[in-house]
Amino acid sequence: MPRTKEQYEALRAASLAKVQAAAITLFARRGFAATSMRDVARAAGISTGLIYRHYETKEELFAALVDYAAAGLHRVVERFGEAESPAELLDEFTRTFLTDLAGDGAFAEFFLIMNQAFMTHDESPQLQRLRTAHALLVDAVIALVGRGQERGEFRSGRPAELASCYLAALSGLATMRLLPDTRLAVPGPSTLMRLLLRQDDHDRGNARP
């Protein structure tokens, strides 16, 4: 019995999802240059011929992932701009990131792909868009920290410095996830949030005049 159009589309969507998931992992772990379409097909459990039905080139596949990552960053930036408690917004984001890190790690692997984008001289529109989206995320975190300080939620200090420490911690955790050392443990949200949350005794001793 021939498949219906709906069944065909469902199979195609499932195959595409496997390709994208495999590509994210391989690009993050090996880098773009060291990953071939054959590698992605093998990791996705599909034939090399089938992967080319989804994407004609490795560059096209990478561009699709970059667009997806950039769109995700824009959604995070929009969420950070909402009129809620800055501490609660950042705690929500932290929990989402750490939950992903303890699971399949797709979001964390996107962080590594972003780092690769900043280390290449590729000026393609897709990478430019990703760099722009990342810059917006950094600005949004800085602004969120500033608002949190005004509300007495975050510790004193330059918002840019505090935001840099927080984002560097996320990037470091994403990188550590690739290490084979099983002694490494994903911290709880409260551990990361201590980088930002106000601690009255500490802040009084380090407050600027």
Rank of each mutant, 00 (worst) to 15 (best):
1 M>A: 15
3 R>G: 01
3 R>L: 10
4 T>W: 14
7 Q>A: 10
10 A>L: 15
10 A>F: 09
10 A>P: 03
11 L>S: 11
11 L>D: 15
14 A>W: 03
15 S>R: 13
15 S>D: 04
15 S>V: 09
19 V>F: 02
20 Q>Y: 01
21 A>R: 10
23 A>Q: 03
24 I>M: 07
26 L>F: 06
30 R>Y: 03
30 R>S: 05
31 G>P: 13
33 A>E: 13
33 A>L: 10
33 A>N: 10
34 A>E: 12
36 S>A: 11
36 S>T: 15
37 M>L: 15
37 M>F: 06
39 D>Q: 12
40 V>P: 03
41 A>E: 05
41 A>R: 05
41 A>Y: 04
44 A>Q: 06
48 T>P: 12
49 G>C: 12
52 Y>A: 07
54 H>G: 15
59 E>A: 15
59 E>R: 15
60 E>R: 15
61 L>C: 14
61 L>N: 04
63 A>N: 05
63 A>V: 09
64 A>E: 07
65 L>E: 02
65 L>G: 06
65 L>W: 03
66 V>E: 02
66 V>D: 01
70 A>G: 14
72 G>I: 11
74 H>E: 09
75 R>S: 10
76 V>T: 13
77 V>S: 08
78 E>S: 14
83 A>K: 11
85 S>E: 05
85 S>M: 06
89 L>F: 07
91 D>T: 12
92 E>I: 00
92 E>Q: 06
93 F>H: 11
94 T>F: 03
95 R>A: 11
95 R>S: 07
96 T>F: 02
96 T>C: 01
96 T>M: 02
97 F>N: 00
99 T>F: 00
99 T>S: 05
99 T>I: 06
101 L>F: 00
101 L>S: 00
106 A>C: 01
107 F>G: 00
108 A>P: 03
109 E>H: 07
114 M>E: 13
116 Q>W: 09
116 Q>H: 15
118 F>A: 09
120 T>M: 09
121 H>I: 11
127 L>D: 00
128 Q>T: 11
130 L>H: 06
133 A>K: 06
136 L>T: 04
138 V>G: 00
142 I>W: 00
143 A>W: 06
144 L>I: 02
145 V>D: 02
149 Q>T: 15
149 Q>C: 10
149 Q>K: 09
150 E>D: 12
154 F>Y: 12
158 R>G: 09
159 P>T: 11
159 P>Q: 12
160 A>Y: 08
160 A>K: 14
164 S>P: 00
165 C>E: 03
168 A>Q: 10
170 L>Y: 04
170 L>A: 04
172 G>I: 14
173 L>W: 01
176 M>R: 12
177 R>L: 02
177 R>N: 09
177 R>H: 05
178 L>R: 14
180 P>Y: 03
180 P>C: 07
181 D>E: 14
184 L>S: 06
185 A>K: 10
187 P>A: 06
189 P>I: 08
190 S>W: 01
191 T>V: 13
192 L>Q: 02
192 L>C: 07
194 R>N: 14
195 L>S: 10
195 L>C: 07
195 L>E: 05
196 L>F: 09
197 L>H: 08
197 L>R: 10
198 R>F: 02
200 D>L: 04
200 D>T: 09
200 D>G: 05
201 D>E: 12
203 D>S: 15
204 R>A: 12
206 N>M: 14
206 N>Q: 13
207 A>I: 03
208 R>S: 15
209 P>E: 13
209 P>H: 14
